[in-house]
Structure formats: structure tokens, C-alpha cells
Design a protein around this nucleic acid. Sequence first.
DNA 1: GGCGAAGAAAGTGTCAACAATCCTGAGAGC
DNA 2: GCTCTCAGGATTGTTGACACTTTCTTCGCC
Lengths: 218, 218
Amino acid sequence: MGNPTSGQEATDHVAKILREAIRAGEMAPGHRLVEFDLADRYGVTRAAVRGALLDLTGEGLVERIANRGARVRVIPLEEAVQIVECRAALEGLCAARAAEHVQDADRELLRAIGAGMREAVGSGDVMSYSKLNQQLHAHILRLSGQKVAAGLLERLNAQIVRHQFRLSLRPGRPQTSLPEHLALIEAVCSGDAPAAERAAREHLASVAEALRRSTEEK
Amino acid sequence: MGNPTSGQEATDHVAKILREAIRAGEMAPGHRLVEFDLADRYGVTRAAVRGALLDLTGEGLVERIANRGARVRVIPLEEAVQIVECRAALEGLCAARAAEHVQDADRELLRAIGAGMREAVGSGDVMSYSKLNQQLHAHILRLSGQKVAAGLLERLNAQIVRHQFRLSLRPGRPQTSLPEHLALIEAVCSGDAPAAERAAREHLASVAEALRRSTEEK
DNA sequence: GGCGAAGAAAGTGTCAACAATCCTGAGAGC
DNA sequence: GCTCTCAGGATTGTTGACACTTTCTTCGCC
């Protein structure tokens, strides 16, 4: 089952590795992605790397300049804010739909996540909180049944994970976002679609605001 | 200046032709896209066609199955409805922002489009109405300054133009959508962001509803 | 006649060499 | 000291042949 050195599978494999590396910040924005080096490092052909870079370009994670190669795309703060605004619109939609579809089992699950979040913030465990945050959003998307919106959100999220991760490390940020998350959970669980939409949008408006503020300071 | 037979330029050229052909319905959903044939028809190399198909796949217009080639993707009605719902969320955002940025020159332009629409519907000129419709949406996007949302909407629109075009030909449909468009224009012009968002969302909710209904009949 | 294997046909997928392009830095000329 | 030019090297872009997969067709066998 050793990964092949080329082919569609290899392309996907490399794309996955690179996505993860970019997400984790191992490859900083602006970092050059030389086809030959990557092929060498991951033991695949240059064609596979090339394909992966093409894919990632389509996803907006990588930027290519003709004859000059690819690099990790730098997402300006202004764009990151717009991305969050789009997320607000789309997650608002999903939260509303999720509230319409919620079942008892889902309520239990969501509230368990909420409890975990409260605990994580209480003990200052930022990593756990971040994980639960992802789980929460993922569950709401699944509940909403909105596959198109989920696809768009996945793309958008991949582009700003770095910005958002940095944000989550700021002192006081979890204390701000926790009540917003809890409000979202309660709104969805109560089946109140307009309230759920409002909660999702308010939460993301708060993220956008925090992002904007992070320009001045830093 | 004759178009090259290969290279990035040729790839883009072919992608553009295919996009247009799919949009115009010359290539029905499900239509097979054989690399060699297309290369022959458009006088480019197979590599160029291949690249174009890869791009279009990323845009969701084309579907590829390993070793079996590409075909025009069939967008099920259920998905088309979800796309319209996403559009509602995103265009709502854009309409609100547009209302915040609107200037006198823009008001004149938007109202001129509105007047043109009224006239087109009055004289039953569906083609003009459709064109003006596109112009209206494009202007609102530009006004909003939301480049990210504009990019997402472009992708989404490309996927459902066919559904939407068929819809616009239904008797009575223009009469329904005209007042919605006029309301949107007035809301944006008056600078009332929440009203503009509401108008955009109501309009697209009506489109979604019409789409859903078109399943039963036909 | 029905069934399945084998072979041909149609297309797509891959590769490795080659071509084109862009950056770098050294050196000539002003 | 400054600019301009031009090899040289590093990297990306392209190509055409070939390998592989899937599908279609034919033919032999029961």
C-alpha cells in the first residue's frame, strides 16, 4: 500500500500534504514551492507535484506566476476580513437550516461540545477549544444538509486558518467567543432558525472585528 | 495575434470557449468531452484541452471519471436550489454593502437599469430583460467591493445559468421578478442596508421557490 | 441461442527529454 | 558610481510517444 510515485493518487497525496503543511504554518505565506524540490522530498514525479500545485491554485491556497513558479499565497488582511464576512453569510444560512433539522441526538452532541468548550476555556486549554470549535462548525454544516455551502466554506476556511489560528492565541479571545458559541448552540438546539442565523452572524462579525483590530496592534 | 495552439493562453482560450458553450446550452449536461476531438475542433494540442478540462472541473462545470474522460456535469435540481440559497446569502451581503457605498452616479445607473427592465417586461423582450438582470447583479457586486463574494457568486452562477435561463422563459416569471428587482434597486439607492439585504434575499428565495416548483410541472 | 474469454478499439494517463523563460551577477561603457 | 548588456544557471512549460484502462466486438464453446 506504499503510495505511488505518480498518478492521480500521488497528485492527491501531495496536495493533501501541502494543504496540511500550509495550514499548520510549516510553509509560511510567500514561501516558494519549487516543483523539483517537492518531487524529491516527497518521492514523487514532478508531474504529480505540478498537478497538486494546480489544484491548490484553484483552491486559492497557492499563487502561480508564469515561468516563475508557485508560492504560498499571502492573504492580505483586507481579504481575510471579506472571507469572514462571506463565512458569516453562509454559516448563517447553515445555522438556520440546522435549527430546522435538529433532532434530540444532535442536541445532546452539540451541548456536549458546548460543555467541553466551557471547560477548555476554564482551564485555558486553547488547543482543545480550537478542536471543539472545528467540531461544532462541522456538525452544524452536516445538520444543515447544505452541501454546496459546506463546500464553499471549506475552501474559505482553508484560506484563513492561519489568520484565525493566530487570532485564537490572543489573550482574552476565547473568553469573548465562548458565549457566542454557546448562544449559537442554544439557538440551534431550540430550533429557532432566525435566532440561529443571527447567532452565527454575530459570532463571525465578532471574528471579523477582532481581525480588523489585529492590524493596528500586533 | 492568431491564438496559439498550446500553452497557458491556449488553455484559457479553450476553457473560455467551453464555458460559453456549456452556458449557452450547446453542450448539454452529460455530453462527453473527448480530449482528442476538442483538440482537433479548436486547433490546439491535447494538453491544452486537458488543462482546460481540469480548470472547468475545479469550477464544478465538468465532471471527470478516471480513465473514462470528462463530461458536462449534470446539476441535479436539489443542488441548483442549494446554489440559489447560497446566492441569496452572498448577494444579501453584497446588496447591504452596496447600499452603504452607493453614490449619486450609481443611483442613476441602477435606476436606468430598472427603467430598462420595466420596459423590457412591458414589451415582452425576454432577452433584454435577462441582459439587464445580469448587469444589475454585476453592478451591485462591483459597488459592494466584496471581491471574495463576487468570485464565489461567479462560480455559482456559471453552474446554474442553464436552470435559470429555462426558468426565465416560463410565462409569467418576468412579471414576478420585476417588482423584486425594482425593490432591490430602490433599497440600494436609498442606502438602507438591511432593506437591501432583505430585498436581495427575497428575490432569490422567489427564484428558489420557482425552481422547486418547476420539478413537479414540466 | 446464451455465455464468457480474448482481442481490438477508443481514450485517457504518464513520462522524460527538450524548449522557453526568468533571475543573477559580472563586466563593459559612460 | 551608475546603467546596460549578456552569458549562465535555475525552473517552469511543452511535447510526442507510449503505457494503461475501459469498453466494444468477435468468436468459440457448451
